[in-house]
């Protein structure tokens, strides 16, 4: 069965791909772009526009997209799972891992 294209891998060296539409846990998503594997099975739900791990990434490991390091894993990230603020952080921006995982809104500032 031909798999619907669901995620875009930019560089062969990347360990994440971007979901072009929402992917449900258990769904097999076809890959497009500069991809190694033909597809990736989602271990969790992945919202549209968010990243899915293409391989197991250990805590402290680099997250690679565009062939460059875009952050560091703050927990073990199993292959196929959602990669975002809850399991990774910026190497520069100390606030990034304090933001709400769904809305991105800051939680470290009170505006009354």
């Amino acid at each position: 069965m031909e798999k619907e294209i669901k995620a875009f891998q930019i560089d062969l060296g990347d360990n994440v791909a971007t979901a072009l539409a929402g992917i449900k846990a258990g769904q097999e998503a076809g890959l497009t772009g500069d991809h190694g594997e033909e597809s990736i099975k989602a271990a969790t739900d992945i919202p549209a526009g968010h990243k899915i791990a293409l391989k197991d990434i250990g805590a402290g490991g680099h997250i690679v997209k565009y062939g460059v390091v875009i952050g560091r894993a703050t927990a073990d990230i199993p292959k196929g799972s959602w990669v975002h603020l809850h399991v990774m952080q910026s190497i520069y921006d100390e606030r990034s891992s304090h933001l709400d995982v769904r809305t991105g809104a800051p939680k470290d500032t009170k505006y009354e």
Binding site: I63, I70, S96
Partner: peptide, 17 residues
Amino acid sequence: YSVSPGNFAGGLSTIEE
């Protein structure tokens, strides 16, 4: 950094990305 709540909600996780 030049990254906003809308960017995060849209799937960008860090300023590097």
